[in-house]
Computed example of a mutant assay.
Amino acid sequence: MGNSFGTLFKITTFGESHGKALGVIIDGCPAGLDIDETFIQNELIRRKPGQSKITTQRKENDEFEILSGVFEGKSTGTPISLLIHNTDAKSKDYSHIAEKYRPSHADYTYDTKYGIRDYRGGGRSSARETAARVAAGAVAKLFLKKIGVDVTAYVSQVGTIQAPEYHEMDLSKTEDNIVRCPDPKVAEEMIALIDQTRKNQDTIGGVVTGVIKNTPAGLGEPVFDKLHAELGKAMLSINAVKGFEYGSGFKGVEMYGSEHNDLFYNDEGKVKTKTNHSGGIQGGISNGEDIYFNVAFKPVATIMKDQPSIDKTGDDATVSGKGRHDPCVVPRAVPIVEAMAALVIADFFLINKTSKLSD
Results as ranks from 00 to 15, higher is better:
275 T>Q: 13
294 N>F: 08
292 Y>W: 14
303 I>D: 06
339 A>R: 00
276 N>R: 07
282 Q>H: 05
337 V>S: 02
310 I>Q: 01
338 E>C: 04
310 I>N: 00
307 Q>I: 04
337 V>D: 04
331 P>Y: 02
292 Y>P: 10
273 T>M: 13
304 M>N: 10
309 S>Q: 03
288 G>H: 05
275 T>M: 14
287 N>K: 08
332 R>K: 10
309 S>H: 04
303 I>T: 11
345 I>C: 05
322 K>L: 09
338 E>I: 10
341 A>G: 09
341 A>C: 04
289 E>W: 03
338 E>D: 12
335 P>I: 11
273 T>D: 14
280 G>I: 04
295 V>T: 15
289 E>C: 08
339 A>Q: 02
312 K>V: 12
297 F>Q: 12
314 G>S: 02
303 I>R: 02
322 K>N: 12
273 T>N: 11
273 T>G: 14
330 V>M: 10
318 T>R: 13
341 A>I: 02
275 T>C: 07
302 T>R: 03
278 S>Y: 12
291 I>N: 00
341 A>H: 00
330 V>K: 13
318 T>P: 03
342 A>T: 06
317 A>N: 07
299 P>L: 05
287 N>W: 00
282 Q>Y: 07
336 I>L: 10
289 E>I: 09
342 A>C: 04
314 G>M: 12
277 H>Q: 14
313 T>N: 08
343 L>W: 02
342 A>L: 08
282 Q>N: 15
313 T>S: 14
325 H>P: 07
274 K>N: 11
281 I>N: 00
316 D>I: 08
283 G>W: 00
329 V>H: 01
333 A>N: 12
315 D>P: 01
306 D>H: 09
288 G>D: 10
308 P>K: 14
315 D>Q: 12
285 I>C: 06
323 G>P: 01
331 P>C: 12
284 G>V: 07
279 G>T: 06
296 A>N: 06
330 V>R: 15
277 H>T: 12
289 E>A: 15
321 G>F: 01
289 E>Q: 15
341 A>E: 03
281 I>C: 05
315 D>L: 11
314 G>H: 05
323 G>F: 02
290 D>R: 07
289 E>F: 06
337 V>L: 03
321 G>K: 01
346 A>F: 11
332 R>N: 06
275 T>E: 13
275 T>I: 14
344 V>L: 07
286 S>R: 00
305 K>M: 12
340 M>E: 15
306 D>T: 13
277 H>D: 07
296 A>Q: 09
324 R>I: 00
318 T>K: 09
311 D>P: 12
330 V>N: 06
278 S>F: 09
316 D>A: 15
308 P>G: 01
315 D>A: 14
338 E>Q: 13
314 G>F: 13
